Simulated scan of single mutants.
Amino acid sequence: MRQYLPTMLLSLTLAALCLPLQANDQASEEGLRIATERKVRDTGWGDTEAHMTMILRDARGRESRREMRTLTLEVLDDGDKALTIFDEPRDVRGSAFLTHTKTLVPDEQWLFLPAVNRVRRIVSRNKSGPFMGSEFSYEDLSSFELEKFRFKYLHDDEVHGEPSYVVEQTPLDEFSGYSRMLVWIDKSHYRVQQIEYYDRRGALLKTLTMHDYQVHQERFWRPHRMEMVNAQNQKSTTLLLNEILFERGFTDADFDQNALQRAR
Rank of each mutant, 00 (worst) to 15 (best):
R2A: 11
Q3N: 12
P6E: 12
L9W: 10
L12C: 11
A15E: 04
A16D: 01
L17G: 05
L21M: 01
L21N: 00
L21H: 01
L21W: 06
Q22L: 14
N24L: 00
D25P: 00
D25N: 11
Q26K: 15
E30M: 15
G31W: 03
L32K: 13
R33C: 05
I34Y: 01
T36A: 10
R38T: 13
K39F: 14
T48W: 05
T48F: 02
A50R: 03
A50S: 12
M52A: 12
L56H: 11
R57K: 15
A59R: 13
G61D: 10
R65Q: 14
R65H: 13
R69W: 09
R69N: 08
R69L: 12
R69I: 14
T70V: 15
L73H: 11
V75N: 15
L76H: 13
L76Q: 15
A82E: 09
T84N: 03
T84I: 11
I85V: 15
F86R: 08
D87A: 13
D91Q: 13
F97M: 03
H100N: 07
T101H: 08
V105F: 10
V105W: 10
P106D: 08
W110I: 00
V116P: 10
R120T: 14
R121K: 10
R125K: 12
N126P: 01
S128Y: 07
G129S: 13
G129D: 11
F131D: 03
G133C: 09
S134K: 11
Y138F: 13
Y138W: 11
E139Y: 03
S142K: 13
S143W: 03
F144C: 00
E145C: 01
L146N: 03
L146P: 02
E147Q: 13
K148S: 00
F149M: 08
R150I: 00
Y153V: 02
L154R: 07
H155Y: 11
H155V: 02
E158D: 09
V159E: 09
V159P: 04
H160M: 05
Y165I: 04
V166G: 03
V166H: 06
V167R: 09
E168K: 06
E168V: 01
Q169I: 12
L172G: 10
D173C: 01
F175L: 03
S179W: 02
W184T: 05
Y190M: 04
R191W: 10
V192P: 06
E196P: 02
Y197K: 06
Y197T: 02
Y197I: 06
Y197W: 01
D199F: 08
R200S: 06
R201C: 00
R201Y: 06
R201T: 12
G202L: 08
L204T: 09
L208E: 02
L208H: 00
M210K: 05
M210Q: 07
H211K: 06
H211V: 01
D212V: 06
V215F: 10
H216M: 02
R219H: 15
F220S: 03
P223A: 02
E227P: 00
Q234L: 08
T237M: 08
T237R: 08
T238I: 14
L239A: 04
L241R: 06
L241D: 02
I244S: 00
I244G: 00
L245F: 01
E247D: 15
G249L: 05
A253D: 14
Q257F: 00
A259C: 04
L260I: 04
R262L: 09
R262D: 11
R262T: 05
R264Y: 10
R264T: 08
R264S: 13
